[in-house]
């Protein structure tokens, strides 16, 4: 299983792997927002938590269809399905590799980009913490969507439509953590909900992903 993870990370970081895509998208979005809404600090401070979280969510969405589609096209998924590894573990490792190449770098770079949006410095640690806690759910839910649409040509649109509603709870609680962090009020409740969503998706969705892949391989 570690072999699958290292292979996916290696593929993501080599030429054409799409490792930088999500980060570049996030960077572009966050730098463009001040041009769009105006540079007033008060206004930017107000919308910064939401923008940063929406940006992270869309950046993670961008690379979802690669999770299984490439392996499906070249026959690797067939081979993995007949190999002596459970498909549930394959789904988990694929989601983990996706998180390590999108969610984790996003969480680490987000405070730097928060400065561009005049995010109060009190909120910076909460931004990183909320992204670290919340983005694994985005990858696991996304892997489920990717598993559902794996056999479809140009399944990207359907994938986005399927996955976006499932992303909403994570977005709400994640942005709420950062907003409360900026105001200096208690963040425990939304953070607990965020962690609960992540843990619940981690516990349940790999099974659903594996089942979806089995149906789609037929």
């Amino acid at each position: 299983m570690i072999a699958l993870l290292t292979r996916d990370l290696r593929l993501a970081t080599r030429a054409g792997g799409g490792f930088g895509l999500s980060l570049a998208f996030f960077l572009i979005l966050v730098t463009l927002v001040p041009f769009g809404v105006g540079p007033e600090a008060s206004r930017l401070t107000l919308i910064a938590p939401g923008i940063l979280w929406v940006g992270a969510l869309l950046a993670s969405l961008l690379s979802l269809d690669r999770i299984f589609a490439l392996d499906f096209e070249d026959g690797t998924l067939d081979q993995l399905a007949t190999a002596p590894v459970p498909l549930e573990a394959v789904a988990t490792m694929k989601a983990l590799a996706h998180w390590l190449t999108t969610g984790l770098p996003l969480a680490l770079i987000a405070p730097v980009l928060g400065i561009l949006l005049h995010l109060p410095s009190a909120a910076m640690p909460w931004l990183t913490v909320s992204l670290l806690v919340g983005t694994p759910a985005l990858s696991v839910i996304g892997a489920f969507g990717a598993g559902l649409t794996v056999g479809l040509k140009r399944g990207g649109l359907l994938l986005s439509l399927l996955v976006l509603p499932l992303y909403v709870p994570t977005l709400i609680f994640g942005a709420e953590v950062v907003r409360r962090g900026a105001e200096g009020t208690a963040t425990a409740t939304p953070l607990a909900f965020l962690a609960a969503i992540t843990l619940a998706s981690l516990a349940g969705l790999p099974y659903a992903t594996a089942a979806a892949i089995r149906v789609n391989l037929r």
């Binding site: 292979r7 080599r14 030429a15 054409g16 792997g17 070249d74 026959g75 690797t76 067939d78």
Partner: peptide, 9 residues
């Protein structure tokens, strides 16, 4: 039919 070979590796 498909070789399941990763070109980048």
């Amino acid at each position: 039919h498909a070789d399941a070979v990763k070109g980048a590796l």
